[in-house]
Design a binder for these strands. Structure first.
Length: 287
DNA sequence: AAGAGGCCCTGATAGC
DNA sequence: TGCTATCAGGGCCTCT
């Protein structure tokens, strides 16, 4: 479901509510997420204070008052809901109660604070909750991942050197988290549209000018998406239930058959499967 | 090593 | 109505 901007929006909304709050109780209803939730999960979390909510790429990192960190990935369909706790029911009725924000199925994990609870919902269960024992393990966990677009390590030479002798197409490069982390299927198409690069183009045929465009537009697209609260397709919301609006700014994603938005471009938006992911591009201005 | 493809899983929607 | 097929903001693993 979420790419870097959506995860960042979730992070921001969580940060407003759970910093310095203590976890009172944890319920794991289904341990079978992408990574199995460990038996000790509940014990590790309960009575811990949340010091900070950070993010790297599409991962949320909750810093706990002990050394442990809670790593959360939302996969394709994971959502986080912060719900005000009804005082009367607090600790007496743990079953679901009606809330317009909360789906009635697939609420796998619940984390209770004093006056509210955090619910993790994930129909497809591609997401996960993982305990990381210290800072060193956290760094190790992310070691293989490439830099985020905002990191200085991600620059024109980095892009050029990675792509210069590869046959892999440029769209798959943008999706490759070991090359650059945080971009997903929607923003990959959007970045290549703004860069006027055909998504099927081989890495080795991308020149420095194009690398510069990828460099610039990767940052631009993600930052603009964050500014707009993320993209609310399939009903994405932040942890407090607020929708984003960047979907209104999509130039190509989901616009198959429609006219290219570039002034004076006669092209239309095509949809093409690249490595089993839908890819959108203008057949005229993306060379 | 690089790159393609399968697979994990459920739900919504389209087409018959 | 009810079936089947396809598709969905991700990422890991296996095979060539």
């Amino acid at each position: 479901m979420p790419e870097l901007p959506e995860v960042e929006i979730v992070r921001q909304s969580l940060n407003k509510k759970i910093i310095q709050k203590t976890i009172k109780k944890v319920i794991v209803r289904n341990r079978n997420l992408r990574i199995k939730v460990p038996i000790k999960f509940k014990k590790i979390l309960e009575n811990q204070k949340i010091l900070n909510v950070d993010r790297f790429s599409k991962y949320l990192i909750l810093f706990l008052s002990g050394r442990n960190k809670l790593l959360i990935h939302l996969g394709m369909s994971g959502t986080i809901h912060l719900l005000e706790q009804n005082k009367k029911n607090f600790f007496t009725n743990m079953s679901f109660y009606s809330s317009p924000e909360l789906p009635n199925k697939h609420n796998h994990i619940e984390i209770f604070f004093d006056k509210f609870r955090l619910v993790y919902n994930d129909p497809r269960r591609f997401g996960f909750f993982e305990i990381i024992k210290d800072q060193q393990s956290l760094e190790k966990r992310f070691k293989k991942l490439g830099p985020e677009p905002f990191n200085s390590r991600f620059n024109i030479n980095y892009i050029y050197n990675k792509l210069k002798d590869k046959k892999k197409n440029v769209k798959n490069f943008l999706l490759d988290q070991n090359f650059i982390s945080g971009i997903g299927n929607i923003y990959a198409s959007e970045i290549l549209y703004l860069s006027k690069i055909n998504p099927s183009k081989e890495g080795r045929s991308i020149n420095k000018t194009e690398c510069k465009k990828i460099f610039k537009n990767s940052k631009l697209v993600l930052l603009n998406a964050i500014k707009k609260g993320g993209s609310s397709i399939r009903d994405f919301k932040d942890a407090l239930g607020k929708k984003g609006s960047f979907q209104k700014n999509f130039k190509v994603y989901g616009r198959e058959g429609l006219k290219c938005k570039r002034i004076d471009c006669k092209g239309s938006i095509q949809k093409k499967n690249i490595s089993n992911r839908s890819t959108f591009f203008c057949n005229f201005c993306q060379k």
